[in-house]
């Protein structure tokens, strides 16, 4: 318990160390999630559009 507490305390610098790691995790995970969502949406829209296009041509 004490070991965890001293780890979280970061030698008194918890207010600086943890926000740095938190900001990193937030920005990188956020960018990754946004990128994947956008790629999936675009590729799905393209597939649908192509399907519709083929029917039109037929």
């Amino acid at each position: 318990m004490e070991a965890i507490q001293s780890f979280l305390n970061m030698g008194g610098y918890a207010a600086f160390v943890w926000p740095a790691y938190g900001a990193t995790a937030l920005v990188l995970a956020g960018l990754s999630a946004m990128s994947v969502v956008r790629m999936r949406a675009n590729e799905r829209a393209l597939a649908e559009l192509r399907g519709a296009d083929d029917e039109e041509d037929a």
Binding site: S32, S35, M39, R50, D53
Partner: peptide
């Protein structure tokens, strides 16, 4: 490695978007 992965994902998204624009 994260950059390479993100670049590929974003390029695929961009490529699909230009194709959608061309079809429209």
């Amino acid at each position: 490695a994260l950059y390479v992965w993100l670049a590929i994902i974003r390029m695929r998204a961009e490529l699909a978007e230009t194709k959608i624009r061309a079809i429209r």
